[in-house]
C-alpha cells in the first residue's frame, strides 16, 4: 500500500486526511469513511452521507465529487489537446511552405 510506505499506519499520530491543507479538511476528514492499512473504518462522507469503507480503500468520494473530478479530468484533457493543436499550427505557420521541403 502506497500510503503505508509513507508511514501512515494505524499507529501513525497523524492520519493522512488530518494532514490536509486546512483545518476544515482535517475536521471533515475525521468523519469520513475510509480504510487505512487494512483497517476498515465506516463513517460519514464529506457531504454527510453514510458510507462504509469495507469495500473501498482510501478516501471515499461522493457521487457529486466523482462527477466534478470527471469534469475536471475532461477539461484537462481538452486543454492538453488544444495545446497540441496550437503547437502544431504554430509550427506550420512559423516554418511556412518550408515545412514540406525540409530534408527528412
Amino acid at each position: 500500500m502506497a500510503r503505508k510506505s509513507k508511514g501512515y499506519g494505524p499507529r501513525s499520530k497523524t492520519r493522512p486526511a488530518e494532514r490536509g491543507a486546512t483545518p476544515a479538511g482535517a475536521a471533515a476528514a475525521g468523519g469520513a469513511g475510509r480504510k487505512m492499512a487494512g483497517r476498515t473504518i465506516a463513517g460519514r462522507s464529506a457531504t454527510g452521507r453514510e458510507v462504509s469503507g469495507s469495500a473501498i480503500d482510501g478516501v471515499v468520494l461522493t457521487r457529486e465529487q466523482q462527477r466534478r473530478q470527471r469534469q475536471r479530468s475532461i477539461a484537462i484533457a481538452l486543454v492538453l489537446a488544444a495545446l497540441c493543436v496550437l503547437f502544431y499550427v504554430v509550427t506550420v505557420v512559423k516554418l511556412g511552405p518550408a515545412v514540406l521541403v525540409r530534408p527528412l
Binding site: 493522512p16 490536509g20 486546512t22 482535517a26 476528514a29 464529506a46 457531504t47 468520494l61 469534469q71
Partner: peptide, 13 residues
C-alpha cells in the same frame, strides 16, 4: 465548515 475529505475541496470546473 468547508467540505474537505482529503485536504482537497473538489471544486467544479
Amino acid at each position: 465548515g468547508a467540505r474537505a475529505v482529503d485536504g482537497l475541496h473538489h471544486g467544479s470546473v
